Amino acid sequence: MSLSALARYHAGLMPALTSYTHALTADQAARLRGLLAERGFEFMTKPYCLYAAARPKVNVLVYEKGPKVVVQGKETEDFVTNLLEPEILGEAKLGYEEVHSPEMFQPHIGVDESGKGDFFGPLVIAGVYVDADVTRRLREMGAVDSKRIGSDARIAQLAAEIRRTPGLVWEVISIHPERYNQLHAKFGNLNRLLAWGHAKIIENLLERVPGCPRAISDQFANPAVLQKALQERGRGIELVQRTKAESDPAVAAASILARDGFVGWLKTQGQRFGMEFPKGVSNNVKQAAAKMVETHGAGILHTVCKTHFRTANEIPQEFDSTP
């Protein structure tokens, strides 16, 4: 964080921090548990957590995957600055992001998608261009990876704030199921289709911000697939592919816009057909798909589902998956 931003943070001119996430080593996770016990935190069991603990105004969850710690509540900042950083992490980072991660505040594009693992609905790909001021605004509003936001209403709220952020440039491509099924057949697999969409988003944004030097996306299984898909302008910039790219505010904002587009489609089409389109590939999804087939015939799945999914062949009906 720049000195001016840091001063605003500690002067209380930026919103109070109510959520914080940081990776831990196994040793740090164990030491944090002991420290929480010493400080009188009440422990509880939570799904996917090594442990979870709470006291009034702050909750601490340490997840198995990573491991990582998530701190939530009105006293998040106090917990991080007075306990977590000095006692466990051994380094003061909160409020000093521009010192520790200057590349986050340099002009760049972030790209992400939503819907690729869902049987119903479109594949939505979004991109966001940011500079230092925009990055600060995104952090202030709480723009984080959409997978960390459990409420569709909160996704919609943040998406609206992102779209009206001064200086931010955004693009969204929504590939509705019928078109998605055609493109999947053309490209032969999801990775090439996804790379095409990412490359198109980058190209569209570079038409509007031609001086942008860099774009960030999540790591493709084969990084060359996206690199090869880049178009004329995209081939002239630095492309960064990395795991957990959503930790970058531009990618996080893109993930929110993409999720908002995906959730919006499910809601609109659910109203159109008078039923709920569930997310994912659960048994509820199969039941909803079977109901659609029973009401509208097997052909309806081409217009509302991704028919290359194995789920299409698990619907209790004879179903031809050829578009």
Rank of each mutant, 00 (worst) to 15 (best):
S114I: 02
L301F: 05
A245T: 00
D152W: 04
I315C: 06
V70H: 11
S19V: 11
Y129F: 08
I88T: 05
Y20P: 00
H108D: 07
K116T: 11
H22A: 13
R154G: 04
K228Q: 15
G297R: 03
P249V: 11
Y96K: 11
A289I: 05
F79W: 05
R139F: 10
Q106K: 14
L206A: 02
G34H: 06
M104W: 12
K74V: 13
S217V: 11
F319Q: 04
P223C: 04
I175N: 03
T18V: 14
F273H: 10
P323F: 02
A160H: 09
F187I: 11
L32W: 01
P316D: 06
G12I: 05
K57V: 11
A37L: 13
A30P: 11
E64M: 12
Q72I: 14
L266D: 04
L194Q: 07
A253T: 03
I88P: 01
F41R: 01
H308F: 14
S282C: 07
V281A: 15
G264Y: 04
H296A: 10
L301D: 00
L94T: 08
A7S: 15
Y180F: 15
K147C: 09
T303H: 14
L123A: 01
Y9D: 14
R192S: 07
Q106G: 09
L32T: 00
H10P: 10
L94N: 04
T21R: 15
Q269S: 08
T322W: 09
N283M: 15
D118G: 04
K74G: 13
E203W: 01
L89Y: 09
P323C: 07
R148P: 00
R55L: 07
D145H: 04
V134M: 07
H184P: 01
F309D: 00
A37H: 11
R164G: 08
A185E: 13
C305E: 06
K93C: 10
E77K: 14
L257S: 03
L24A: 03
G280Q: 02
A253V: 07
D320C: 08
S321T: 14
K286W: 06
L50F: 03
P47D: 04
V128Y: 07
V69E: 02
G40V: 08
V240M: 09
L226D: 05
N59S: 15
D27W: 10
Y9S: 14
L168V: 12
G66H: 03
E113Q: 05
D78K: 14
I201G: 04
N191Q: 15
L301T: 02
P15C: 06
L190C: 03
Q182I: 13
A289Y: 02
L83C: 10
C49Q: 09
Y51K: 05
G121W: 00
S146H: 03
T268V: 15
F41P: 11
R31V: 07
Q72S: 14
A290I: 08
I300P: 00
K57N: 15
L17E: 10
E113W: 00
A11Y: 08
N181F: 08
R235V: 08
A153C: 06
T165C: 13
P47S: 06
T311P: 00
